[in-house]
Design a protein around this nucleic acid. Structure first.
Length: 818
RNA sequence: GCGAGAGUGGCGGAACUGGCAGACGCGCCGGACUUAGGAUCCGGUGGCCGAAAGGCCGUGGGAGUUCGAGUCUCCCCUCUCGCACCA
């Protein structure tokens, strides 16, 4: 009897069966010699129920996990939650719900949704970063970094809302104003914790070569973020004080073109030099302005603001004295915070020079050309020949850069230098809902680590979120008051918590040893499963999350805890799910939720819609693919046809007939789908399954071949529509165990080769006929057949054939015109 | 500005190394079954000419290489993403 497809009947049933059978639990049995596969998905943040982005990412990740299980792998496919973070605290402030309660409720809802979607998670490995059992180990890792000089404190600005009297995260600052009250945000300096990721800048850059299967654009983003520049440090002398100020330049070949010198506003020498030169009154407003502006405001200056400092710098290459300026366009955070300005060859310096009436001196000219500085409208950053450069006149760049650098070094006036754009990782958050930094500040012993046996440092559960101020932890009446572990005197806990990126930088290790009490993980466990075989998640984490994971892994490697240096050599990014060309957002009111779709049409439909819409890494515009929400989606109808095709085939039974078309198509489909799965081409894999379905329905009275086709189709369907596949496999096809445990279908390569192929016949490159010819046709036979073809004869009538291109058995092309 | 990527029917998208452009699906048109269709089934569906056979045009625009270009090269246009005063 033809089966009707009713997802509401079958999906809840299999959720329960799978759970009862504990089907998706990774095997740790030493006798299990299947190769392992760690299918890792970026764990979600519990900000409500799952959204469309999760639905897409996890549909892809689950397809990979299920496919690999069927390929005979022992699959580890865990799930957890990145459950610390600001939204939980906002809920506490707005609605008075404790952060833990809000978080756990959302986690439970998402977990229920994942179950309903039939995700093949090993639920015994479930973790949550806000669980003390987890964050104790986050603190433990902090202490190991601290002991090894990789965690340190320094002053750093934070966003401060003067009205709410509180620290704001960057994402709470909207166009320079407080998200909640709209007050202009100020900058405040606080002493905060950093991880010394810059120590790893070069290795993070070099090891990009080990990321064999990362999308190229993510690799590029990582490289740009690290931002290595090669150049030279050159030391200038301040004429008035004799002090030496070092600058970094990537263009030492332009040193003879320096016409002024610029300090960053926050440069430590600025105030002293300004007071000395009597210019402090002019300089101070710049400093105050910089202090007042918020961190997050990236106002682009269209002017090159700046004031003279009143002192002079002496150029080490030619002894020239040039005026010093203070200007915000020079950043304190990069290089040395002071630059040599070469307006002729740097656009920013050029603009500054023009605005302040400073001279421009050309020292690099395009070969054979003379450039008049007065006529210039923009800087010449290009290569050329050095002029006005003393001993280096006539030297062509860019080779001159190395020569000048070597000369500087010989003369003791500078040396080769490498700078990185990457800054140290600021991990302090003046927040409650995060892992407390396990440090005690003692008046006599300074920064003292909380002893390992006192971890975790637990969050108090009675914090007041309505107070404002530095943070709920700092204002808690008792929490921070402790005795110093070293001297036993009165001391205070650090009241900052860690950036949630710290929590998420090591969770994939914990999955391997969940529940282990002797450390964050057991090295043997991690070595057994890692590096992860596949990491799936959104490009929005292309830089920070992935960079931090890479850094922590390298740090753990250096601590002797893991043998490898890269945690995820293979990365798969899904595109974003957007709506009508724009991001889905509350303010736009265009949010589409996955769960209503799952309830209405089934989880299999949701998965198929996501994966069939296009290449996995491309964005999906829901507006364009969804159609009328009340109409049955196309993929649902297809599942209905699959049900009909498979169940009809079962009814018919073997009848001995073997329609070659179906036999071959089945083999070709297995081959094609397997190749597509290996390259994550889910959309084309699904389309091939649709073609096979259509052929099965068109082929009647073909029990034997159709039965094999039905089994293959059912199994290949399992990664995409696991419920439908499971129902067909276990009910209609009568198998006892799950598709998860079944072997992926194999094919006979010989059977995928057609005996007859279509040969195209062209005249002057235009299609004139098509012929069915044997696949092994000889060139002369192909040519003869093509000449005989009616379309070719018609097109060739009255023409002279000048040339014949024969590519048996695919094509013959007659060339008649010169 | 710098860097990366992409432009193919009404729509989402196929097309391995240059060789049948538009697979598969949505939508639409026609038909069947039906009280009904938001279910199902059958047929059609790039544009233009043609009764048909067939022909011409067609992968953002323009050149080029080639017997042959969606695919390779150069120039231009548009869009998306990332970084953005990084010396």
């Amino acid at each position: 009897m033809t089966r009707r497809y009713d997802p509401s009947e079958i999906e809840p049933k299999w959720v329960k069966v799978w759970e009862d059978e504990r089907l998706f639990e990774a095997s740790e049995d030493p006798g299990d010699d299947r190769p392992r596969f760690y299918a890792l998905d970026m764990f979600p943040y519990p900000s409500g129920d799952l959204h469309m982005g999760h639905a897409e990412a996890f549909s892809g990740g689950d397809a990979v996990a299920r496919y690999q299980a069927m390929r005979g792998r022992n699959v580890l496919h865990p799930i957890g939650w990145d459950s610390f973070g600001l939204p939980a605290e906002n809920a506490a402030i707005k609605r008075g719900i404790p952060p833990a309660e809000w978080t756990d409720a959302n986690v439970e809802q998402q977990a229920a949704s994942f179950r309903r979607m039939g995700m093949s998670f090993d639920w015994t490995r479930r973790l949550q970063t806000s669980d003390p059992e987890y964050y104790g180990w986050t603190q433990w890792l902090f202490l190991r970094l601290f002991e090894n000089g990789l965690a340190y404190r320094k002053e750093s600005p934070v966003n401060w809302c003067p009205k709410d009297q509180t620290v704001l995260a960057n994402e709470q600052v909207i166009q320079g104003r407080c998200e909640r009250c709209g007050t202009l945000v100020e900058r405040r300096d606080l002493t905060q914790w950093f991880f010394k990721i810059t120590d790893y800048a070069q290795r993070l850059l070099d090891d990009v070569d080990l990321l064999v299967d990362w999308p190229e654009r993510v690799v590029t983003m990582q490289r740009n973020w690290i931002g290595r520049s090669e150049g030279a440090d050159v030391t200038f002398t301040i004429e008035e004080t004799g002090e030496e100020i070092t600058t970094f330049t990537t263009r030492p070949d332009t040193l003879w073109g320096v016409t002024f010198f610029v300090f960053a506003v926050e440069h430590p020498a600025v105030q002293r030099l300004a007071e000395l030169a009597g210019t402090w009154e002019q300089v101070r407003p710049l400093l105050e302005k910089a202090r007042a502006s918020s961190l997050a405001s990236h106002e682009e200056a269209d002017t090159k603001e700046g004031v003279p400092l009143g002192v002079h710098a002496v150029n080490p290459v030619n002894g020239e004295r040039v005026p010093c300026y203070v200007a915000p366009y020079v950043l304190m955070g990069y290089g040395t915070g002071a630059i040599m300005a070469v307006p002729a060859h740097d656009q920013r310096d050029f603009e500054f020079a023009r605005q302040h009436g400073l001279p421009v001196r050309v020292v690099i000219e395009p070969p054979g050309q003379h450039v008049d500085p007065a006529a210039m409208t923009e800087a010449l950053p290009h290569e050329g020949v050095m002029v006005n450069s003393g001993p280096f006149d006539g030297e062509p760049s860019p080779a001159s850069i190395a020569k000048v650098t070597a000369w500087l070094e010989r003369e003791g006036r500078g040396r080769e230098s490498v700078q990185f754009r990457l800054r140290d990782w600021l991990i302090s958050r003046q927040r409650y809902w995060g892992a407390p930094i396990p440090i005690i500040h003692c008046p006599t012993d300074g920064e003292v680590a909380v002893p390992d046996d006192q971890l975790p440092v637990l969050l108090p559960d009675d914090a007041d979120f309505q107070l404002g101020g530095e943070s709920p932890l700092a204002q808690h009446p008792t929490w921070k008051h402790v005795t110093c572990p070293s001297c036993g005197g009165e001391a205070e806990r650090d009241t900052d918590t860690m950036d949630t990126f710290v929590d998420s930088s090591w969770y994939f290790f914990r999955y391997c040893s969940l529940g282990y009490g002797g450390g964050p993980f057991r090295s043997e466990d991690v070595e057994r499963w890692m590096p992860a075989d596949q990491y799936t998640g959104g490009v929005e984490h292309a830089i920070l999350h992935l960079l931090y994971c890479r850094f922590i892994t390298k740090a753990l490697h250096d601590l002797g805890m893991v043998s490898f240096v890269e945690p995820f050599p293979k990365l798969m990014n899904q595109g974003q799910v957007i709506f009508d060309g724009a991001r889905m957002s509350k303010t736009r009111g265009n949010i589409v939720q996955p769960m209503p779709l799952v309830e209405r049409w089934g989880a299999d439909t949701m998965r198929l819609m996501m994966l069939f819409a296009g290449p996995f890494e491309d964005d999906i515009d829901w507006q364009l693919i969804a159609g009328d929400p009340d109409r049955r989606p196309g993929v649902t109808s297809w599942l209905g046809r699959v049900f009909a095709a498979v169940s009809d085939t079962v009814d018919r039974g073997p009848d001995g007939q073997e329609p070659l078309e179906l036999v071959r198509l089945t083999q070709k489909t297995i081959k094609g789908v397997t190749e597509d799965m290996d390259r994550f081409r889910f959309n084309t894999a699904i389309s091939k399954l649709m073609v096979l379905t259509n052929e099965m329905r068109a082929t009647l009275g073909a029990g034997g071949a159709a039965g094999r086709a039905a089994r293959a189709l059912t199994l290949m369907l399992a990664p995409f529509a696991p419920f439908a596949a499971e129902e067909l496999w276990r009910v209609d096809l009568g198998e006892a165990s799950s598709t998860w445990a079944a072997a992926w279908p194999s094919f006979d390569p010989a059977m995928t080769v057609e005996e007859l192929v279509t040969m195209i016949v062209q005249v002057d490159g235009k299609l004139r006929d098509k012929l069915e010819v044997p696949a092994d046709i000889s060139e002369p036979d192909a040519l003869a057949a093509a000449r005989d073809a009616e379309g070719a004869r018609r097109a060739l009538a009255g023409r002279e054939v000048l040339k014949e291109i024969v590519r048996a058995p695919k094509l013959v092309n007659f060339v008649t015109v010169g």
